[in-house]
Amino acid sequence: MIRIGLTGGIGAGKSTVARELETLGAVIVDGDKIAREVVEPGTPGLAALVEAFGERVLAADGSLNRPALAAIAFADDESRKTLNAITHPLVGARSQELITAAGPDAIIVQDIPLLVENHAGPMFHLVLVVWADAEERVQRLVSQRGMSEQDARARIAAQATDEQRRAAADVWLDNSGAPDSILTEVRRLWDHRIVPYGHNISERRAAVGAPAPTDPAAQRCYGRRARCCSRSPAC
Score class of each variant (00 low, 15 high):
residue 44 P to G: 13
residue 45 G to M: 10
residue 45 G to H: 14
residue 50 V to M: 04
residue 51 E to F: 00
residue 51 E to L: 08
residue 52 A to C: 05
residue 52 A to H: 12
residue 53 F to D: 03
residue 55 E to Y: 01
residue 57 V to A: 04
residue 58 L to C: 09
residue 58 L to V: 10
residue 60 A to C: 10
residue 60 A to L: 08
residue 60 A to G: 12
residue 60 A to W: 00
residue 62 G to Q: 13
residue 62 G to T: 06
residue 63 S to N: 06
residue 64 L to M: 01
residue 64 L to A: 01
residue 65 N to Q: 06
residue 68 A to F: 01
residue 68 A to R: 02
residue 69 L to P: 03
residue 70 A to V: 11
residue 71 A to R: 14
residue 71 A to P: 06
residue 73 A to T: 10
residue 73 A to H: 07
residue 77 D to W: 07
residue 80 R to L: 14
residue 80 R to K: 14
residue 81 K to F: 03
residue 83 L to F: 09
residue 85 A to Y: 11
residue 89 P to C: 08
residue 90 L to S: 13
residue 92 G to W: 11
residue 93 A to K: 14
residue 94 R to K: 14
residue 96 Q to R: 15
residue 96 Q to T: 13
residue 97 E to K: 11
residue 98 L to C: 03
residue 98 L to A: 12
residue 100 T to F: 06
residue 100 T to Q: 15
residue 101 A to S: 15
residue 102 A to E: 11
residue 102 A to G: 11
residue 104 P to S: 11
residue 105 D to F: 07
residue 106 A to P: 12
residue 108 I to D: 06
residue 110 Q to Y: 10
residue 111 D to I: 03
residue 115 L to Y: 02
residue 115 L to N: 00
residue 117 E to M: 05
residue 117 E to G: 11
residue 118 N to Q: 13
residue 119 H to I: 04
residue 119 H to K: 15
residue 120 A to H: 10
residue 121 G to F: 02
residue 121 G to N: 02
residue 122 P to H: 06
residue 123 M to T: 11
residue 123 M to Q: 15
residue 124 F to T: 08
residue 124 F to K: 10
residue 125 H to C: 02
residue 125 H to N: 14
residue 125 H to Y: 10
residue 128 L to P: 03
residue 129 V to Q: 04
residue 129 V to K: 00
residue 130 V to I: 06
residue 130 V to C: 08
residue 130 V to R: 00
residue 131 W to M: 12
residue 134 A to K: 06
residue 134 A to V: 13
residue 135 E to H: 07
residue 136 E to C: 00
residue 136 E to V: 13
residue 136 E to N: 05
residue 137 R to P: 00
residue 140 R to N: 04
residue 142 V to M: 03
residue 142 V to D: 05
residue 144 Q to C: 05
residue 145 R to S: 13
residue 146 G to I: 12
residue 147 M to Y: 13
residue 147 M to C: 02
residue 148 S to M: 02
residue 149 E to I: 10
residue 149 E to W: 05
residue 150 Q to W: 01
residue 151 D to L: 13
residue 151 D to I: 01
residue 152 A to G: 11
residue 155 R to Y: 04
residue 156 I to T: 05
